[in-house]
């Protein structure tokens, strides 16, 4: 293999590693948006909760699988509670007001975790060891494959869920027209709680999968949340596949930018690309062109 190609491949794999993480976080944004048209800025905190709770439960003596189950369950409950206690009562509020509520929820959750579990960084063990896998001279860590694999599975599962189950269809219906969904006998309140729960589940899984790569602490969700939001927007809101493509694109732009242009400006390059995409496609890569109801 020519060295320039190996180098390119390595940049690509590096981009996919971060991109898969952004994608998984972005998917959580897309899911909640799909059901409720709310952008949940506390999505990053679900990611943080997944990682931190798994660490807390394992250090309390639980086996890793059990700790993972526990952490996911608690995070899902937190997500549902967030919907029930904070989003539902403010249902008729303005979009910006809802954004502020979720930001407040994020600050609150970070505060609670820092008080109860401390401010230190914690690692989780990799699922299948730390021996890099070589692909044509470039390398990738097995944990990154886990992130990629789970993201792919989640997209397929969600696709199936939304297309073939009554519950999934209810969520879609609620997203399109809440009133009509209600008239059709869909329990809209339940659907919304469920979508937050599902999204928290995705966030927690993301947090657990990436903790072996990046380590976790109470503030890890801030930047991941931001990148996930960017991924969801780039892909087009409310579109699961879009979030995945958006996340991977974001990761790859960052890594190619760092590799070929300037590592100092890789984040700026990524945002310039996002702005450029939005300029030509105001609803992201896969978003539907929205029409305003008058």
């Amino acid at each position: 293999m020519p060295p320039a190609f190996v180098e390119f491949l390595q940049f690509l794999l590096s981009g996919i590693t971060s991109g898969a993480i952004y994608a998984l976080v972005g998917l959580g944004f897309a899911l909640i948006y799909n059901a409720s048209h709310v952008i949940n800025f506390a999505q990053g905190e679900f990611v943080m909760l997944g990682g931190m709770l798994t660490w807390a439960l394992t250090s309390a003596g639980l086996d890793l699988p059990l700790a993972i189950g526990g952490a996911v369950a608690i995070t899902v409950l937190v997500g549902m509670a967030l919907e029930k206690l904070a989003i539902e009562p403010a249902r008729d509020a303005n979009v910006v007001t809802l954004i502020i509520i979720t930001i407040g929820a994020g600050i609150f959750l970070r505060g609670v975790v820092s008080v109860t579990l401390g401010k230190d960084f914690h690692p989780l063990p990799s699922f299948s060891g730390d021996d890099p896998i070589s692909i044509l001279g470039a390398t990738i860590m097995p944990q990154s494959l886990w992130v990629l694999g789970v993201s792919a599975l989640v997209v397929i599962a969600l696709q199936g869920f939304f297309s073939y189950t009554l519950l999934g269809k209810s969520i879609l219906a609620t997203s399109h027209n809440r009133m009509a969904a209600k008239l059709m006998g869909i329990n809209v309140g339940f659907v919304l709680v469920l979508s937050f729960g599902l999204s928290a589940l995705l966030g927690a899984m993301a947090g657990i999968l990436i903790a072996p790569i990046t380590a976790t602490n109470f503030e890890v969700g801030i930047i991941l949340g931001l990148k996930g939001f960017a991924a969801a927007i780039l892909g087009g809101l409310g579109n699961g596949l879009g979030a995945i493509v958006g996340g991977l694109t974001l990761g790859i732009i960052e890594s190619l930018g760092a590799g070929y242009v300037s590592s100092d400006y890789k984040d700026a390059i990524a945002f310039v690309v996002i702005l450029a995409v939005l300029f030509f496609m105001p609803s992201g890569l896969f978003g539907r062109r929205g029409t305003e109801r008058v």
Partner: peptide, 20 residues
């Protein structure tokens, strides 16, 4: 001290919920 963010987050949420 440590509870600063817990309280700040709670205040933000409650104000926006009850006074949207």
């Amino acid at each position: 001290a440590d509870y600063e963010h817990v309280i700040l987050g709670l205040i933000m949420m409650t104000v926006m919920i009850f006074m949207p």
